[in-house]
Write a protein that binds this DNA or RNA. Structure first.
Lengths: 273, 273
DNA sequence: ACAACCTTGCTATAATCCCGCAAGGTTAGA
DNA sequence: TCTAACCTTGCGGGATTATAGCAAGGTTGT
């Protein structure tokens, strides 16, 4: 059951509608109403057997959403954001479901695979995988297991480490994402965040290896030691106290040219790992 | 040349960028920047040979658009509407190009054809036809000719009657869209409008024929005579002065049951003809 | 008892979005 | 003057998203 969903019997003083009725009134299919719900648009109460119960206000909101969709051409994410700005919807935090989707997309993006490639390998449809990654549909345990196996992860990875960090993260609480050869990354905030801050600890001579590029922007601050970073063939030597801002689309590579460990505060948006 | 586009030489006091530079800074391809431009997002000046000239403000706006697209997941139509609300962009009226697209989509929708069906019949790609209908790409004369032929229209229909009406439309200025057996429809406003108001003149015993349904909502006001309208098997007899509001998704049919001509003011949204 | 609805998980298809290319023209530097 | 690297418009191919329906099983209301 989704977090925040309330199970209760409606009182006869409060007329309600079932999803089929609402679909007819609004002019979209029940499937669409359910998918909009998962984005935070209209969160109806439920009976004990989990039937959705909509109010007249819900119908009104959904009609507005339909207008924005069909007449104005806004997609669902935009509709939710607009109605959120107007205080008309209050989408719950993503919780686990949202984090799973983002995690799946990161895993796929990192391997530079298309939706079609992963979907075919795992035995699900492209549309379904897209919806999973965008947290618009939920997968069964069987499906998540297949995906975990494909990415060589443990299915528990999807449930455990997926939570969001609190605002404050003490050193012992940091999540270590990956420890490559001589490179240790400690995540300083995670969950549904737009920025992804890390603390990098880089041993002497260790680095990123070959140049790479991806989308986004990156901010670096040298806490201690030196960092050599090369963008588009141009080399920079950064020292303690230096900062550096660049676009991830520019091919770049970096390494620690010094004799002691370098510590770098590194923030990128959007999250790429 | 698009209405409102200004040809002028930039002064050396005002630094400008070409589209390739902008694409690199923003992090999308030149094609995407061009397609966003056609939606009203960033309208750069041009050199005499039509090269686009972007300012630093344009770049800033496009970066914001990219963020909204890639991080927030808003589609281009939503981004334009949001930035319009903030007074950051001022999309020009659609003019001819916009009207052609809307006209094409109406022609296709009316025949209940898919993009794929029309595209294949005409010999263009689905994506291109979609973009044409959404006024995001322009077609050559050859392409428009093929489409006109497919729909059994004159290519001039795309250029002439596509303009928008003025606010005021006198009786003699009304556009007669269709005159079926005993049914005359006079359009009272046209162009890029969300509502489509008509005056229907319906001879005795004439009507819509078989029940039909489509998307949208409809408002009717009986100016004179009677109208019999049936929704979902339920019959209504409307007289002069009566009004009627219903959802187009409900299967409906109507006819004039009286002995003299019925005049009905009929408004529907979105436009369906 | 049963028709008509609901649930979740998922598919197939329709539509949109993105980026690259062809053909031809322009720019800016060697 | 030449030429590489860019631009233009028109369009295609492929990736992604949006929509509506279905299977299997459960619920509701007459």
């Amino acid at each position: 059951m989704q977090p925040g969903v309330q199970v209760m019997k409606p009182t006869s003083a409060e007329p309600y509608l079932k999803i089929g009725d609402v679909a007819k009134k609004v002019g979209v299919s029940p499937s669409v109403i359910r998918s909009w719900e998962s984005l935070g648009l209209a969160r109806p109460r439920r009976t004990e057997s989990k039937y959705r119960l909509y109010t007249a206000d819900d119908v009104k909101l959904l009609k507005r959403a339909r207008f924005l969709r069909k007449v104005r051409g806004l997609n669902a994410a935009a509709i939710v954001q607009l109605l959120k700005r107007e205080g008309k919807v209050h989408p719950a935090g993503d919780g686990n479901a949202g984090a799973i989707g983002a995690h799946l997309r990161q895993l796929r993006a990192r391997r530079r695979l298309s939706l079609a490639q992963v979907a075919q390998a795992v035995g699900i449809s492209v549309g379904f995988l897209s919806a999973l990654e965008r947290s618009q549909m939920s997968g069964s345990v069987g499906t998540l297991r297949k995906l975990a196996r494909f990415y060589k992860k443990n299915i528990l990875d999807f449930f455990n480490a997926s939570g969001a960090s609190g605002r404050q993260v003490r050193p012992a609480e940091r999540k270590v994402l990956e420890a490559g050869a001589g490179v240790r990354m400690e995540l300083l905030a995670w969950g549904n965040t737009v920025m992804e801050p890390h603390l990098f600890r880089i041993a002497p001579e260790a680095g990123s290896g070959d140049p790479y590029a991806h989308e986004g922007e990156e901010f670096i601050y040298i806490l201690r030691g030196d960092l050599e970073i090369t963008l588009d063939g141009e080399e920079y030597r950064l020292k303690s106290g230096d900062s550096f801002y660049f676009e991830s689309a520019t091919p770049h590579r970096w390494k620690n040219p010094g004799r002691r460990e370098t510590w770098v505060l590194w923030v990128n948006t959007p999250p790429t790992f």
